[in-house]
Amino acid sequence: MQALDKALAQVGRVVLGKEEQLKLALTCMLANGHLLIEDLPGMGKTTLAHALARVFKLEYRRVQFTSDMLPADILGVSVFDPNTQQFSLREGPVFTQLLLADEINRATPKTQSALLEAMEERQVTLDGVTRPLPQPFFVVATQNPVDQAGTFVLPESQLDRFLMRISLGYPAPEVELQLLAGGDLREQVRELQAVINSEGLIKLSRVVGKVRASHELLDYVQRLLDATRSDDRFVAGLSPRAGLGLLKAARAWALVSGRDYVLPEDVQAVWPSVAEHRLSARQGGSVAAITQSLLQSVPVIRR
């Protein structure tokens, strides 16, 4: 697990003072899930995605979503080649290992759903031909929570496709000072050393599945899920898919923390980023506050 620590340290060199978020992002990748970063522009989303691609030696592409974008702009298109008299597929940017989908909420729902389907199926069907996406395949999507003019907000059902949602937030003053004193960030990202290659990452994500979870822990996870369903401050509770995602994320978190079995702390650590974007509160409620309060009220040990 030293490799993981090293990877964290590497990314930490360019994304300063965000250890918690970096660890969550790494966890998300190990759990084979897609990540949604919700932040204002200029908070280092792109840097984070790019840095992750570097340390894991992943093929990296970036797509800036706009409202006039079509599904073909992402997935690819068949073009007629006059020389061979045949159609050939020109692959879109989705055929990569790490795709940064910047401001995903700017695209029309049609384009959004084309990407989200590709995320779920890990394959793309064009003109009746199905092509698998590269392995591993991660999407890091970003969203601007404030500037909502002319955007298409992702509905909850689509948000469910993202294993985690995190936000980076402003850096702490001393960290910001350090940032200001440093050199060109792009330069620094390019200088980052690859720690593991993509095969190593696939192997690691297989190890995640072997992290042990006791019956008592599963019981706790179930009671947490149950609590969201019986709490009438939420419009609807978490789905079983969300439950499976929560457990997987907790396993990955345990692995990143250097343990081979899951503790309730692991569940609690990934809980907000896994649960919040999947839930919506009834009027006047704050999803973050309610999900946090559930951690307080649901007994960790059965009684």
Binding site: P264, E265, Q268, L294, L295, Q296, S297, P299, V300
Partner: peptide
Amino acid sequence: LVAGLTPMQ
């Protein structure tokens, strides 16, 4: 104490 405490908490 609240109910939702892990042993370590």
